[in-house]
């Protein structure tokens, strides 16, 4: 300290005034924040907007949701009414997607199937979300013995061949939409619980959690206010990927005849009906449900990928 003082004292008088120049504007403003600062979510949204594939998926899903809600209402035909004189009509101006072997309008049935698929997917994701977050949050935060026991249970559930259990449950409870959702949720939350637990395990050692604890915050509050908001990214990604697997499971089960029952339409049921048309050439009966199952799963998958890139700061390049 003493040395620097000495140096300053020595040199300051010897610097002539003309050596001083006003700094230019650009330098003056260098420290100013020129753009509005973005929150984490705004930043992620901008990133997602730039991802063309993910946006295509999002737009398609938006369209699908609107058609699922209004399609069956707008259509002059009913989903279940049988109209034998008009069976197996090819797509035309009155039946845009044609009719099936009982004369039902495939266009109407397709959107009705969209309702079921989206409903099953969203419900499964929501149930996974709540159960997984509560279970994973508690397990990760409590740690030690509680965590050990809870994770052993998860490990056992993880090993169960879930589709076998789902099929057995469906047979016991009788095939219906509720049964499918319940059956899918019985084992579905396990993946979410694992992710939440892993995140919480990392986060709970940070100082802001310690600060909350020292202010006397209760466990429930810490998990809800400190830990979960910080793990939202991976949770949302996991949810976006849960939806297509639930949609797949529903159509798979309906295809096997264990899910949604006739006369109601699900894409799986329609594909199964359409299977017999491979030889008869009524291609529209298989094509439309097949196309929409695949397109919906595709949309959710690319959206999930896009969200993962947008929400995970570690992957940013």
């Amino acid at each position: 300290m003493g040395l620097r003082k000495e140096v300053n004292n020595q040199h300051s008088p010897s610097v002539p005034d003309e050596w001083f120049r006003p700094i230019n504007r650009a330098e003056q403003n260098a420290e100013k924040v020129s753009r509005p600062s973005l929150s984490y979510w705004q930043d992620a949204w901008h990133r997602l907007l730039k991802n063309r594939l993910a946006m295509t998926g999002l737009v398609f899903l938006f369209f699908l949701a609107i058609m699922a809600i209004f399609g069956p209402i707008w259509s002059p035909y009913s989903v279940t009414t049988i109209d034998l004189p008009n069976q197996n009509l090819a797509p035309s101006s009155s039946h845009w997607f044609g009719t099936d072997d009982l004369g039902r309008d495939v266009f109407t049935r397709t959107w009705y199937g969209a309702r079921i698929s989206l409903f099953v997917g969203l419900m499964a994701a929501l149930i996974d979300f709540f159960v997984g977050i509560i279970y994973g949050g508690i397990s990760g935060y409590k740690g030690g013995r509680v965590d050990n026991i809870m994770m052993r249970i998860v490990e056992i559930l993880y090993g169960l061949p879930y589709l076998l259990i789902v099929i057995l449950l469906l047979v016991v409870m009788g095939p219906s939409l509720t049964t499918i959702i319940v059956a899918l949720s019985v084992t579905g939350w396990v993946g979410m619980a694992r992710i939440v637990r892993g995140q919480v395990l990392q986060l709970k050692n940070y100082e802001f959690v310690l600060a909350s604890q020292s202010f006397g915050a209760k466990t429930k509050r810490i998990i809800r206010k400190n830990l979960l908001p910080n793990t939202m990214g991976p949770i949302i990604v996991q949810m976006t990927l849960t939806v297509p697997s639930a949609i797949f499971a529903e159509s798979f089960l309906s295809f096997l005849g264990l899910g949604i029952q006739a006369p109601y339409a699900s894409w799986g049921v329609m594909a199964n009906d359409g299977l017999s048309t491979i030889l008869s050439g009524h291609w529209w009966r298989l094509f439309f449900p097949a196309f929409f199952i695949s397109a919906t799963m595709f949309a959710f998958n690319v959206l999930g990928d896009g969200l993962q890139d947008a929400l995970d700061p570690k992957l940013r390049e």
Partner: peptide
């Protein structure tokens, strides 16, 4: 790869039969 993940196997099966067998 994304298409492969998105198309359910039973749907793919029906399309394969349609194309290659029928």
């Amino acid at each position: 790869a994304v298409l492969g993940i998105s198309i359910p196997n039973f749907i793919l099966a029906t399309q394969l039969i349609q194309t290659f067998a029928v």
